[in-house]
Simulated assay, not measured.
Amino acid sequence: MIPPGLKGWKVVITRPRAQAGSLRTLLEAQGAEVIEFPSIRVAPLDDYAAVDRAIERLGEYRWLVFTSQNGVAAFVDRLRASGRGVAELGRVRLGAIGPATALALERHGHRPAVSPDRFVAEALVEAMAREDLRGARVLLPRALDARAVLPDGLRALGALVDVVPVYRIEPEPGHSPRALRRLLDGPVDCVTFTSSSSVRNFVALLGEGGLRLPARTIVACIGPVTAATARECGLSVGVVAGAYTIPGLVDALSDRAGRRVPRGAAR
């Protein structure tokens, strides 16, 4: 029997508290001691007028494209708030970035027509390039202030893209540089990041406290976009998941620990 690959490791999770459960479960299955220190949270918008107007015209769109589970949840909430139901999703073709976003749609009874495995906007643009998007209206509900890669890429393919915010990401309240200092005073082996915003807000706390990650602490990122942000913020990245998913991140960290656990056991 192969022992847990992360036994004795202390691993910090920085993703939103409400979404930390799956990562915690997989890390603990590998033997890690997990510390939740969310650097961000998903927050509602002050004004939903733009997305509500888009929902009223949903039949005018050929495609509805989601970039995250949060986007699916927030859009479905607005559908219901407007007196509509998830059946409305069947009026358009659906696109989704990554398996988790696709699964969120499937839980509402709708399978996306396009869903690349890689959880990056560039992968969805590549997949959508196989479709005829010339003149097609595309609705893109997503986080406020998200990257321009996806809408710009779809427009380059000839699509008419409407971007509407449905939620925002903000720093997790209640954390202080003092709390972070106490966390880092312990023997932390790894800090995990699953989004660029989680990196930026964690590094901002470091800066406020005049702190640096200990040299022995490994920075582990869910994919290349998050890793690039970490490097831009001055962090040394030790692990980047090959599969840009939560299980992929745990697999990559287990590899880094030097004891590969069979893929099935990590999922």
Score class of each variant (00 low, 15 high):
G5N: 03
L6Y: 12
L6A: 08
K7G: 14
K10E: 15
V11R: 10
T14C: 06
R15V: 12
R15T: 06
P16M: 07
A20G: 12
A20E: 03
G21P: 04
S22M: 07
T25D: 12
E36K: 05
F37Q: 09
P38S: 02
S39V: 06
L45C: 08
D47Q: 07
Y48G: 05
Y48I: 11
R53S: 11
A54K: 01
E56N: 07
G59F: 07
Y61W: 10
V65Y: 10
S68Y: 05
G71I: 00
G71D: 00
L79P: 00
A81K: 12
G85R: 13
A87I: 14
L89A: 04
V92M: 07
V92L: 02
L94M: 10
G95N: 06
A96L: 02
P99F: 08
E106H: 04
E106S: 01
H108Q: 13
P112F: 02
A113N: 14
D117P: 09
R118N: 08
V125E: 03
R130W: 04
L133Y: 00
P141N: 02
R142N: 06
R147Q: 08
A148V: 11
V149E: 12
P151V: 02
P151F: 01
L154W: 05
A156M: 14
A156T: 13
L157K: 03
G158L: 08
A159Y: 06
L160F: 11
V161L: 02
V161R: 03
P165L: 10
V166A: 06
V166H: 00
R178D: 13
A179W: 11
A179D: 11
A179H: 08
D185W: 12
P187K: 07
V191Q: 05
V191K: 03
T194W: 05
S197C: 05
S197T: 06
V199S: 09
R200Y: 09
N201V: 12
F202L: 02
V203T: 10
A204L: 14
L205C: 08
G210K: 04
I218V: 15
I222T: 01
G223V: 00
P224Y: 06
P224V: 04
A230R: 06
C233K: 07
G234A: 13
V237G: 01
V239I: 08
A241D: 04
G248M: 08
L249G: 01
V250N: 01
D251M: 14
S254W: 07
D255R: 15
R259N: 11
